[in-house]
Nucleic acid binder design. Structure first.
Lengths: 249, 249
DNA sequence: CGATGTGTTGACATGAATCAAAGAAAGTGG
DNA sequence: CCACTTTCTTTGATTCATGTCAACACATCG
């Protein structure tokens, strides 16, 4: 199955936490990330602590259980938060997009792994420095609190899906949520009926707590029923949104 | 005086948000709840905003989807956070104990219902007043942030359980977590091997994303295998903790 | 072109849900 | 304290959704 994950260990040399110096003023997520709470002076200060850093698709930024030395803002790309069992089973517990925050402030170790699903760019901070900075800047902390509360709501909502929904309902819910979150990305207005997923079947399965086969079958069936189209491996076009919502429950 | 803060909630007339005036200085959770971040003066201020309130077992304090007019600290008892589907399926997405915080600060509506599983006592705040107070008190907000981050970690960990674990693993994980959280309660040191659950089989099932029958069968089987004892409906005695941990995965 | 990773499809096995009924406990009222 | 009801739990028989195993199809890429 997913042997790769078990093999790779903290030795992964691809992760050094250096990277380019940050210029916050011109940052693409300046107004959407938690940094939006800061004025020019504060931003300059924080900028000194941050380092831009590229992560290739498939590479892991933070390892579950490791001391988590960094937190970061996502500038570009999509990353997944993964909890794994000893035997290799994986559950994706979160997916983060540009302007989202990653890492565990005020905590010793990372409760999950963070892995890039696409090539990504993140703005990294040493955790300790960030913690100190945050403690001194209530507005930043307020933003972080709001974000964390939103994430918690999302996680709990997802718990309902994982614990109580059928495979069909899971897939429908997933497609609807993704169409929303992905369209939030490209500045285009409203929800799009067609979109490109940043992940493959196995990863959808890991998000939904299903196997890749069940996931594939559900998608095929939905296509057969005219609910959607699958123009290519990662593209989805939802035809009948209302029906999809009815199924999602 | 006890100005009813808000009223009118669906069906359940037992909920009015009046209740006794709060005396924070002598509060049982003074040093464990988020209030621990406040000094005497601040506490007095917050105390004016709070009202003690009793909730009978089975009664609901907050309804999913409703405007959430209040937040609260738990003083005594155990409450559940529930997300329900239209057809009645329920998933318990959180269980809160004394000194825990409930409600959704800085948010419009409650993303889940909050229902007492035992007779409970809570210290209630009008949400708006609390939001304002919190915004003016960074230390309080910091505590709240830490708590929320912890809750998020716990929720994500639970997602792994819901999405990927077998019924047997779920029950074992549940028993271990409960034995820890419940012993955290009574000031007794360390984890206890025997404890009394504050909920029945159906509720365990709703926490684990199982049916009541499967839950019951797993417990019976574990007893048959000598892993545990079930002295009464709600009592659990874990005999072989190591084996239980091995099963939990 | 073979080689490799990824997705689809089929046949089959199985864990958990469902349906049904019987037992235990816990209330209730006499 | 005893019948009686109600609620909760256990147990059994059966079904069904999803997992598992296996083969194949389809891209993509040296």
């Amino acid at each position: 199955m997913t042997a790769a994950i078990i093999v790779a260990l903290p030795t992964d040399a691809a992760v050094d936490y250096g990277g380019g110096v940050t210029d916050c003023a011109s940052c693409v997520v300046r107004n959407r990330a938690i940094c939006a709470s800061l004025d020019a002076d504060e931003l300059a200060l924080l900028g000194k602590l941050g380092r831009n850093h590229r992560v290739k698709a498939g590479h892991t930024l933070l390892w579950e259980g490791d001391d988590a030395p960094v937190v970061a803002n996502v500038l570009e790309g999509v990353l997944k938060l993964v909890v794994a069992a000893a035997d290799g089973r994986e559950q994706i517990v979160g997916v983060v997009f540009p302007s989202d925050f990653i890492g565990r402030p005020f905590g010793k170790e990372s409760p999950y792994s963070v892995t890039a699903m696409t090539d990504a760019e993140v703005c990294i901070f040493n955790r300790k420095s960030f913690d100190d900075f945050a403690s001194a800047h209530p507005d930043l902390q307020h933003k972080l609190l709001r974000r964390t509360l939103d994430e918690l709501d999302r996680a709990r909502h997802w718990m309902m899906l994982l614990g109580r929904k059928s495979a069909e309902e899971k897939v429908a819910s997933f497609l609807l949520e993704m169409s929303e979150r992905l369209s939030g990305q490209g500045c285009g207005a409203g929800t799009q009926s067609g979109f490109e997923l940043p992940f493959g079947r196995q990863q959808i399965a890991d998000i939904l707590g299903l196997t890749i086969e069940t996931t594939s079958r559900q998608l095929t069936r939905m296509r057969a029923e005219g609910l959607l189209d699958l123009p290519s491996r990662r593209e989805i076009v939802i035809h009948d949104r209302a029906a999809m919502e009815a199924i999602a429950g």
